[in-house]
């Protein structure tokens, strides 16, 4: 399309980083949508496939980019699923926020010593922890909710390890 823009208008030129972030965010959103179609016996128990993408971004491009992809995933994913500003959106946002904070803190630890698997497990626990705290404070104001915590934690451990191994293998196979 020929540009007829006058001198006062601006055309946003996406940088290479913008394109990269959009690329990763698209993958994360797709993973989140695929996952939304999988029935779960218990709300909150989900594989968290999108986190594979977040882990790869974290390993390759650092924490700031991981935050971008995660934020885009939560907002765009919820818009596409029709969940924007619904309770599930706030749960996802609080989980994502907590896991990003933990991943940010763990950036101080060498990747040689702590790889994608450990980070994935830590982030999964932070994710469900953040969700549980918000749910307790807002949606189910009763300590009975914590009766389910062991189930959530076991799922976090399992899916954390699986996602971490998947992310590590994907990076092994596609070295940069």
């Amino acid at each position: 399309m020929a540009s007829t823009a006058g001198p006062a208008s601006h055309e946003v030129q996406p940088s290479a980083r913008d394109r990269r972030l959009a690329h990763y965010a698209a993958a994360a959103i797709a993973a989140a949508l695929v996952e939304a179609a999988i029935p779960s016996p218990l709300p909150g128990v989900k594989p968290g496939l999108a986190n594979v993408v977040i882990l790869i971004v974290l390993a390759r491009h650092g924490w700031r980019d991981a935050v971008w992809v995660s934020v885009l995933r939560v907002i765009a994913g919820s818009l596409l699923a029709g969940q924007f500003l619904a309770p599930g959106f706030f749960l996802a946002a609080s989980g994502a926020l907590c896991s990003l904070l933990v991943l940010g803190a763990l950036q101080a630890v060498s990747w040689r010593w702590l790889g994608p698997v450990g980070r994935s497990v830590a982030a999964a626990f932070a994710h469900i922890g953040g969700q549980l705290l918000l749910a307790r404070a807002w949606l189910v104001p009763h300590d009975g909710l914590f009766n389910l915590a062991p189930v959530f934690f076991a799922a976090a451990l399992l899916f954390g390890v699986v996602n971490g191994v998947v992310a590590a293998r994907l990076m092994e196979r596609n070295p940069q």
Binding site: G115, G118, V121, A149, F153, L157, V161
Partner: peptide, 20 residues
């Protein structure tokens, strides 16, 4: 794929699950 610190985090996660 699995590095020393990973085992530590996994063990901590397992302990947290069992304790809860």
């Amino acid at each position: 794929v699995v590095r020393p610190g990973d085992w530590l985090v996994i063990a901590a996660g397992l302990a947290a699950t069992v304790a809860t």
